[in-house]
Simulated scan of single mutants.
Amino acid sequence: MKSSVPHLLDGSAIGLSGLCLVHCLALPVAAAVSPMLGVWSQAEWVHLIFVLLAAPLSVAALVMTRPRRPAAIALAAGGLALLAAALLFHEAETAMTVAGGLVLASGHLVNWRGRLHPPHAHAA
């Protein structure tokens, strides 16, 4: 059952990216309706929690996958870098977070699809 662990981790990482996107895009709209939600849409600790969950989950999913896929690793690293940069540069926080979440999810989709459709060895 060890081979199902990376599949579960990739699926969890994709789900976390989706939750992050909902937080970034839907919560500010909901905050217009309810001021209490406005506190959550601006809370720095929420973004930090997403990054602290995404980083180890992503690394675990990509490290446990054999063979490793350079495209998936590059996409995931870029996505995590954008998420981390959003914590530092507040001017474009939402744009960087949305882009980072999408790029990170794309890396996990590449990883997931690669496991479902492994490359065939070519006959010499």
Results as ranks from 00 to 15, higher is better:
V103I: 15
W45S: 12
T94D: 11
L53T: 02
G15C: 10
P28V: 04
A13I: 07
L116G: 03
L25I: 14
W40K: 11
A92Y: 10
G107M: 07
L19K: 00
A81I: 03
V22L: 15
A26T: 12
V39W: 04
R66P: 07
G15N: 07
T94F: 04
V110S: 00
R113Q: 05
I49A: 12
I49V: 15
A60G: 00
H90N: 11
A71E: 15
A54D: 01
A77K: 05
L52D: 04
L27P: 06
P70E: 11
L57C: 09
L19I: 01
F89L: 11
L116P: 00
S41K: 08
M64E: 08
G107R: 03
A26Q: 15
V98I: 10
C24T: 10
L88E: 12
L116W: 03
A13P: 06
A86H: 08
A74P: 07
G15S: 15
A26N: 13
A85L: 11
A60Y: 11
R115L: 07
A72S: 15
V98L: 04
M64V: 06
L83Y: 01
L19N: 05
S34H: 13
R113H: 06
L83K: 08
H122N: 03
H90G: 08
L62F: 08
P119V: 00
A86W: 02
A86C: 10
S58G: 15
V39I: 13
V46M: 13
R69C: 12
A71Q: 14
V103G: 00
A84L: 14
A121N: 00
A74C: 14
W40G: 10
S41N: 12
V103Q: 04
I49S: 08
I73P: 01
A26P: 09
L82Y: 01
H90L: 11
G78H: 02
G15E: 02
L19F: 09
F50Y: 12
R66W: 14
S34L: 12
E44F: 09
